[in-house]
């Protein structure tokens, strides 16, 4: 088990929702996989919790759609093991598609399976339609997030 896991959440075939997997690709090309486990997931909370269980540092990259900041804006959040719910309430209305990293963090916290450190990079997306191409602002953000993650990993152990 690597002490560091980077989890890219998203769907490669839904435009900017694929930013998480795109960051994993960039990290893989930069050979970061030698110092961190790279995991691509759809965001289903139990799978996310499984992926970060036992990690010293878990870094999650996901797309967000707040419509409050320009596309490509990167938000960094750090959640400690004793912090509670991250983001939206997991009990909110809607089916499984409405669940996200907030629900995963709440579940992990409830069953005592949070990483020692959890860092979330949320990238504001512009388009979430069908297709593999990222919008230009999000494509540019991929390089920035990848560099930030390399810095985060470099600061561990």
């Amino acid at each position: 088990m690597n002490a560091v896991v980077v989890i890219g959440v998203g769907n490669r075939y839904r435009e900017d929702d694929g930013v998480g997997p795109a960051v994993l690709d960039a990290l893989s090309a930069a050979m970061v996989s030698s110092s961190a486990r790279l995991v691509e997931l759809d965001g289903e909370p139990a799978r996310v919790v499984d992926a970060w269980t036992g990690a010293e540092l878990a870094i999650v990259v996901d797309a967000q759609r707040s419509d409050r900041v320009p596309a490509g804006t990167v938000c960094r959040l750090e959640v400690g093991v004793d912090d509670g719910v991250l983001g939206a309430s997991p009990s909110g209305a809607g089916g499984s598609h409405a669940l996200g990293i907030g629900a995963a963090a709440a579940l992990g916290h409830a069953v005592g399976r949070m990483p020692a450190r959890l860092v979330v990079f949320a990238v504001e997306g512009a388009t979430f339609g069908h297709g593999e191409a990222l919008s230009e602002p999000v494509r540019r953000a991929v390089a920035d997030v990848s560099a930030s993650i390399r810095d985060e990993i470099g600061g561990t152990g």
């Binding site: 139990a46 919790v49 499984d50 997991p90 009990s91 579940l107 409830a110 069953v111 005592g112 399976r113």
Partner: peptide
């Protein structure tokens, strides 16, 4: 209301479910 609230009171039971699911995975 949800499994997370259930887990807050019955963590071992929900953990059993998560581990079962993981075996399937």
């Amino acid at each position: 209301d949800n499994a997370i609230d259930l887990a807050a009171d019955h963590a071992a039971i929900v953990e059993r479910g998560l581990q079962l699911k993981k075996v399937g995975n």
